[in-house]
Structures are given as structure tokens and as C-alpha cells.
């Protein structure tokens, strides 16, 4: 490794010496990339934390004493706690069906799984309003039975599930495709039931990929704004999640409180990033192709 690095370096140096351009071009490209990164990623992140702590830790901490802010955090945790397990189950089921069985409509299913990635989050929210809203398809039925989905927690959960459902499935499909079905077949010929095969053979084979998918799914579920915003109705203390609450605070010029809340989301993103990097570094071979999202 060290040897080949040195060789690469020598080769690059030789090219630079021969043309006089290699080094300059490299320097410019690296500077450009780093500058871009600083401007668009590091600077905003620093700004978030700087703004959050502008009036000191006390003010930052005080922002979380607001009952509406606490309600927003609680709601985000509730929505995530439902959406992520739901997508965990769905993702495993979809990946299992797609990779271990042959059935008509398989490629359609694969395409559909990617749909939430290609659809605007606003549309992802609107479909639920059109379906369950007061003027929606099932609106009268829901009203007659005293059920509220839109502008309530169920709507937030549905929108979040919809937006985040590709993460686990997309991570597992290539992984399970690569692993094939021989392990499961071996377990079956040895007399194992379907459940035993899943728990003792399949799950251990996919656990790191699954964890990786869940991590990404979780980060998106907590941070989702667009789709959730459409179905939320923005009732303070009731249907505002953290991202929505940040917007409201900001619009009311409560910058410290807004950025304090935002700093929590940013911290979540950083933790996700660290865990993701760790998983890729430690278990890269067990993830789908070792690629990130």
C-alpha cells in the first residue's frame, strides 16, 4: 500500500515535471473542492452552532424549556419511533421478496420503491391530503367515524414513512442479491423453518447493511420538512415536528431558540455521519458494494 502510494506520487511528480501543469491543476482542483466544501457545508454548520450559542449556553438551554419546543422534540421522536420500525419491516420484506423469489411485476416493484426519492416532498405530502383530507377521497368516511389523519400525528407518520421507505430496502436489495439464496436453501434442507432461517441465517448476513439503512432512514425521518409540512397544519405544541418548529421560531425572529433547535438537528446529522463512516470503514465488505448515499 505504502509502496504503491509512493509510486503513484512519483508518477504524478514525473507527470508534473514533464508537463509543468500536473501540479498546478491538482492544486487548483483540490483548492476548489475544499473551498466549495467550506462555503457550502462547513460554514453553514458553524453558523448554526455560532448562532445557537451566541448568547451563551444558558440561553441555548433556555430555548428547550419552552413547552412548544419540547412538544416538537417529543413529536419528532414519536414519529420516528413509528416510521423507522415500519420501514425496517417493509424494507426487509421488500428486499426479501425481490431477491429470493421470482414473481411477475418484480421490476415494477423495484421502480416503485425508488419513487419517494424522485417525487418532490411537497407532492409526497399532498397525496395524503388528497386521500385523507376533509375534501379528500376518504375524508367524509373519516369524518363520519371521528378519525383525523391530516393535521394530526397519523398524517405526519404516514408522510414520514412514505418519504423514508426507500432507505432500508435500497440498502438491502443489492446486498441480498449478491448473497443469493444458497444459505437459506441450505438451512431449509437442514430442516429449519422459515422464521428460524430468517433469524439465524438471513439476519446475521444482512445486519450491518440493515443498520446502515436504518441509520440513514432515521436521519431523514427526523429531518424531513417538506412532506411533513404539508400534512402538519402547524398547530403549536401538537403537530409541529422539530424542523417545522425551527421554521416557526425563525419567522418570529426568535433566532437563538430557532438555532438552538437547529443545532440539535445538525448534531444528529453529525452523529449519523460519524456512525455511517464507522460502519463503512469497519464493515464496508458487508454493505452493498461499500457505497454511500
Amino acid at each position: 500500500m505504502a509502496m504503491s502510494d509512493t509510486d503513484d506520487w512519483r508518477a504524478a511528480a514525473a507527470t508534473a515535471g514533464a508537463t509543468g501543469e500536473g501540479f498546478a491543476a491538482r492544486a487548483v482542483l483540490i483548492a476548489l473542492a475544499l473551498g466549495f466544501l467550506a462555503l457550502f457545508l462547513v460554514l453553514p454548520l458553524v453558523a448554526v452552532f455560532a448562532e445557537a450559542f451566541r448568547n451563551g449556553v444558558g440561553a441555548w438551554w433556555a430555548a428547550f424549556q419552552d413547552p412548544d419546543g419540547l412538544a416538537a422534540i417529543r413529536l419528532t421522536l414519536i414519529v420516528t419511533a413509528i416510521a423507522v420500525p415500519a420501514n425496517l419491516v417493509f424494507g426487509i420484506a421488500a428486499a426479501w421478496a425481490i431477491t429470493k423469489f421470482r414473481f411477475p411485476g418484480k421490476s415494477l416493484l423495484i421502480t416503485l420503491i425508488d419513487l419517494p426519492f424522485s417525487v418532490s416532498p411537497v407532492v409526497s405530502g399532498l397525496v395524503w391530503v388528497l386521500l385523507f383530507g376533509a375534501q379528500g377521497l376518504l375524508g367524509p368516511f373519516l369524518k363520519a367515524n371521528g378519525l383525523q389523519i391530516i393535521f394530526a400525528v397519523p398524517g405526519l407518520v404516514l408522510a414520514t414513512i412514505f418519504v423514508t421507505f426507500p432507505f432500508v430496502a435500497r440498502e438491502l436489495i443489492p446486498l441480498m442479491e449478491e448473497q443469493g439464496t444458497a444459505d437459506e436453501e441450505a438451512a431449509m434442507t437442514l430442516g429449519a423453518s422459515g422464521l428460524t432461517t430468517f433469524v439465524r441465517v438471513t439476519l446475521p448476513n444482512i445486519k450491518w447493511g440493515l443498520l446502515y439503512g436504518v441509520l440513514l432512514c432515521n436521519a431523514r425521518a427526523m429531518g424531513e420538512f417538506g412532506a411533513v409540512s404539508v400534512v402538519s397544519g402547524h398547530v403549536r405544541g401538537l403537530t409541529n415536528t422539530m424542523p417545522l418548529h425551527v421554521e416557526i421560531l425563525y419567522n418570529e425572529y426568535e433566532f437563538v431558540a430557532a438555532f438552538a433547535m437547529a443545532s440539535l438537528l445538525a448534531a444528529l446529522a453529525l452523529v449519523t455521519l460519524v456512525l455511517k463512516t464507522f460502519l463503512e470503514w469497519r464493515y464496508g465488505g458487508h454493505l452493498a458494494g461499500g457505497r454511500g448515499h
Binding site: A182, D183, E185, A186, A187, M188, T189, L190, G191, A192, S193, R200, V201, P204, N205
Partner: peptide, 27 residues
């Protein structure tokens, strides 16, 4: 298949990677 009582050996072994040799054989 699970009640048929066959022993099947695969071309690419299909051993359970996370189990020891003894756990594989005893599965």
C-alpha cells in the same frame, strides 16, 4: 423440502459465515 430429509451440498459451500465449524455442522 424441510421435511424431505435430504442432505444438500452446494457448489459454493453455502456455509453460515457467522457460525463456527461446529455450529455449522450442528445446525
Amino acid at each position: 423440502v424441510r421435511e424431505r430429509g435430504v442432505g444438500f451440498v452446494f457448489q459454493h459451500y453455502a456455509l453460515f459465515k457467522h457460525m463456527t465449524v461446529a455450529e455449522n455442522i450442528g445446525f
